[in-house]
Design a protein around this nucleic acid. Structure first.
Length: 259
DNA sequence: ATGACTCAATGTTTGAGA
């Protein structure tokens, strides 16, 4: 089975690239983030024509997540239990489903904006809610993984120049401690191989030639439990999908698993 | 070449992304 995660930065704008990528890559399950559309505007029909069912959580302008599957969608969940609200709103940042014998969550972790900003506290609280949800599922026999845009670089090697990140979000001890707590539920970081260069970056800023200069970050992660991790046969970042006209600023992470 | 930001709505500017 082939499973992928991709922050598409607007599923409506990216639809032509998404459908072409689905046809060329042929994943069985895809976790999407940053749909940036209402539930009504989600392009369910063109995806169905390619054989994919979808479970989504979306409410308009920002955020929005989905799981696409062509191997079944069972036991869908469309919100993270006990997720904190921000400005009084519970944002659509997590969905789950069981697809072909694998339990997956698609997550879009809050950005945090700046250290000390209320959004940063929100990020940490949201990650704690995710940890509690993972505790319920990570210990089972079923292959289980939380895939998505975590907005955290797990190590200093996961950013292109650590000295540029002093005082910034995405690299702090508090954020990395939240990731460590998530791993302690029984999950491991499935690190993909890069197709070029040494580091498997998954995001490059649109500005200032970020991609051509490979000024990237690894912030799109696959956290799998033992049955999942032990079945992984390959994992890579599809940087080809970041090239050309009109890409997302994130590249997909693709995992092949012997299930 | 991989090329100098992009997206959606609050819409001709703003907020967010990271």
């Amino acid at each position: 089975m082939r499973i992928a995660t991709w922050n598409v930065n607007s599923v409506t704008v990216r639809l032509p690239r998404l459908t072409a990528w689905l046809e060329s890559t042929a994943p069985d399950v895809v976790c999407l983030q940053e749909l940036k559309c209402s539930a009504e505007a989600f392009p369910a029909e063109p995806l169905r024509e390619l054989g994919y069912e979808a479970v989504i959580s979306a409410d308009g302008r920002w955020n929005g997540v989905a799981v696409l599957s062509r191997v079944g969608l069972a036991a869908p969940v469309t919100a993270l239990p006990d997720a904190p609200a921000y400005d009084g709103v519970r944002e659509p940042r997590a969905v789950a489903a069981t697809c072909g014998g694998i339990r997956v969550w698609s997550v879009y972790v809050p950005n945090g904006r700046e250290v000390g900003h209320p959004h940063f506290e929100y990020k940490l609280e949201w990650l704690d809610a995710l940890r509690k949800a993972a505790e319920q599922e990570a210990g089972g026999e079923l292959p289980f993984a939380v895939l998505g845009d975590y907005n955290i670089a797990p190590t200093d090697a996961d950013v292109w120049d650590r000295s540029r990140f002093d005082g910034a979000t995405h690299v702090t001890e508090a954020e990395r401690a939240a990731l460590a707590a998530l791993r302690e539920t029984g999950l491991a970081d499935v690190v993909p191989r890069p197709l070029k260069y040494d580091q498997p970056f998954t995001y490059w800023d649109y500005r200032e030639l970020g991609f051509p200069k490979n000024r990237g970050m690894r912030i799109d992660l696959v956290y799998g439990n033992a049955p999942f991790e032990e079945a992984v046969s390959d994992a890579y970042v599809d940087r080809e999908a970041r090239k050309g006209k009109g890409p997302s600023d994130h590249a997909p992470v693709v995992v092949d698993i012997a299930v």
